[in-house]
């Protein structure tokens, strides 16, 4: 097994599926010779040729339409949106067209499209590069939304996404691309979409989170442990659909929950998780469910990122409030 960063693990997943399935094609802006702005498609065009890995003209709606069209000849497109803020250009293609193709064809024709895109705060990008927009897609029926938090999951989830016969939005947090390495097995393996992962076992409170906030929550859990609070941390891995069973089971044990997301508070994944808990486990709770999120402003200008993004202190504070309720 090799030690890989998340970026490398994603490249490895793409390479593996290009090798294993001739129908897989990869395209987007700068993904060819340049290997993508984050070098995630590095070397793939050289290895598999321009027929399989190619640059598109600069037009995201075109990328989305192309993907849908290619599925009609049996291709399995993995389209890249260079930064997720630019997905608004492709919103019609992804949400109105790709997500609805199966439904509109009376269940006959699924669209096995993967939309890969970097996002996430803490790396000081210009506007519309870092926004957490997963909530918008989670609200769209027909789409699965996957957000890995580590290299191992990233490879396994991406392979699952490519093999899925329905569209999957696969979001890659930029802060996680190069921040740490994991053991990543060679060749094909899958991590199930729609299945959460307990990344830290605990007894006193359940922290439910995803993406880069998994690391932040683990850091908070370590600090909480020093104060005698034993937190369980759940990494959702897929934010649509949400693995409610894993959450409910954990809450039955801890009786307390805090949901953490990097996105703004309004109408997001965290709100959905709280609602699911209300529906299924309210009688198991000994305190209201806490939420740690960013405030409801546009993703901040770079110079204010650090104060805007939720951090481990915010989580510790909220957990204590819930534990001492």
């Amino acid at each position: 097994m090799a030690q890989m960063t998340m970026a490398q693990a994603i490249t490895d997943a793409l390479r593996t599926q290009l090798k294993n399935d001739d129908n897989v094609v990869i395209f987007g802006e700068d993904v060819g010779q340049n290997g993508g702005v984050y070098r995630v498609t590095e070397g793939l065009q050289a290895e598999f040729g321009e027929e399989r890995v190619f640059d598109t003209p600069l037009a995201e709606s075109g990328i989305g339409g192309l993907a849908l069209g290619l599925t009609l000849n049996g291709f399995r497109p993995v389209m890249e949106i260079q930064f997720f803020g630019f997905v608004f250009e492709a919103m019609d293609a992804v949400v109105s067209q790709i997500a609805r193709l199966r439904y509109r064809s009376g269940g006959k024709h699924g669209a096995p499209v993967v939309v890969r895109s970097p996002f996430g705060g803490g790396v000081k990008t210009p506007e519309l590069h870092a926004d957490s927009l997963e909530g918008l897609f989670a609200q769209s029926p027909g789409l699965k939304v996957v957000i890995p938090s580590n290299p191992y999951d990233a490879k396994g989830l991406l392979i699952s996404a490519i093999k899925d016969n329905d569209p999957v939005i696969f979001l890659e947090h930029m802060k996680l691309y190069f921040s740490f390495r994991d053991e990543v097995p060679e060749g094909e393996y899958t991590v199930e979409i729609g299945k959460a992962n307990i990344v830290r076992e605990g007894t006193d409170v359940t922290i439910i989170t995803y993406g880069a906030m998994v690391q932040t929550s683990l850091k908070a859990a370590d600090k909480l442990a020093e104060e005698g609070i034993n937190a369980e941390v759940i990494d959702l891995r897929t934010v649509s659909p949400i693995d409610v069973d894993t959450i409910v089971e954990s809450i039955k044990k801890t009786n307390r929950a805090v949901v953490v997301q990097e996105a703004q508070k309004q109408a997001g994944i965290a709100a959905t998780v709280v609602a699911e808990i209300n529906d299924r486990a309210i009688l198991d709770l000994e305190a209201p469910v806490g939420r740690v999120t960013a405030p409801d402003t546009v993703f901040p200008y770079a110079a204010a990122e650090e104060v805007w993004l939720p951090n481990d202190k915010d989580i510790v504070e909220k957990v204590k409030e819930i534990v001492n309720f």
Binding site: Q266, P295, D296, T297, V298, P300, Y301, A303, A304, V307
Partner: peptide, 25 residues
Amino acid sequence: KQKVTDLINIMNEQLPNNLREQLEE
């Protein structure tokens, strides 16, 4: 240096409830 409160204040002409609460926070 810009603060989160600065950013909250430039979101709307009149702050909606959620932001008014967050401004205090």
